[in-house]
Design a binder for these strands. Structure first.
Lengths: 168, 168
DNA sequence: CTCAATTAGTTGAAGCTTCAACTAAAGAGT
DNA sequence: ACTCTTTAGTTGAAGCTTCAACTAATTGAG
């Protein structure tokens, strides 16, 4: 017990703001997407990541990394999105353990239709609410924090490696 | 449909970092607290807020505001913490609709025992990971974002009003 | 003073995430 | 080849959050 190594008033103040954003921002994003598209933010983000992948296809593990999620979580979500017709799953030919997830045409349209409203929310709450320099500072601070969060084998890799050779 | 008003590459990059932190940081905080104290971050934060309140007591609505949560969520969590002996609930004498939550001695000890380890995690992932100026910038950016998140009648108020006259 | 509307809080059901357990395929070592 | 270990993914149960409905007390209008 190193006896409290407590935070200064200013540090605490900053930390409380961070905690509040982390608690509240997801709800705000969910609210807009749920109301306008019937999707959670995580579902939308997943579809959006797939939409930008080559062939609109990604292996489950890659998709988990790209969306900062655990594999079980992803598996459940993908099953639901598949039932709704936005995604297809099929076994990876080169590695029979693996599963590929591909965005369907319907899923693509969903993303295209939903994106503008979502971007609006992101701008309203974050991008346009901050001065450009503030946004940069926020992004950089978040990148530093991410580096401390024992990379769930996805984000850090994705942002540093220019491009892997994960051809299917 | 104003046709996409999309983000620049740099804005997108910053936004992706923010999203990742918002998804991953809660899990990291939960992991440390769950392992070391059997508490979720929200539960710890709630107990900590109560520990700093006068009489270690707060009305449910105030506590919901202070912890950035909805009333139903708070109600469920408080019920569980009460069953574990960390909190007591009792009706507010001045307003019979209201319920007060008070930290028990056992709850107080739990916070005291748990705080150092939690502060360590907060420092490791955020406060000490960033340069002082970066932390300030992060805190300020988060404060701006909060202002856009239709204040759930708690945080914004708490940080601006020097102190209300909510004596029981 | 009375009735409608608001505020405070609780509750149960539904939905999502986490956790542990499990199947199956790929690698590593011998 | 054969076994042991690791990797990929799925699944069901448990736990937490959200949502809608509900009770009860307070406030406000007339």
């Amino acid at each position: 017990m190193t006896e409290s190594n407590w935070l200064s008033a200013e540090q605490l103040d900053d930390w409380l703001s961070v905690v509040a954003v982390v608690e509240l921002l997801p709800g705000a994003l969910d609210a807009q997407l749920q109301a306008d598209a019937g999707l959670s933010h995580y579902e939308y983000f997943l579809l959006a990541q797939l939409s930008e992948a080559p062939e609109r296809t990604l292996r489950m593990t890659e998709l988990a990394g790209a969306t900062n999620a655990t594999l079980p979580r992803l598996s459940h979500v993908v099953k639901r999105l598949e039932q709704r017709g936005y995604i297809e799953r099929f076994p990876c030919p080169s590695d029979k353990r693996a599963t590929n997830a591909r965005l369907t045409d319907e899923g693509w349209e969903k993303v295209v239709d939903t994106a503008p409203g979502h971007v609006g929310a992101v701008r309203r709450h974050v991008v346009d609410a901050l001065e450009p320099a503030q946004l940069r500072a926020l992004g950089e601070a978040c990148a530093v924090i991410l580096a401390t969060l024992d990379p769930p084998a996805g984000f850090a890799a994705r942002r540093q490696a220019p491009s892997a050779d994960d051809a299917v």
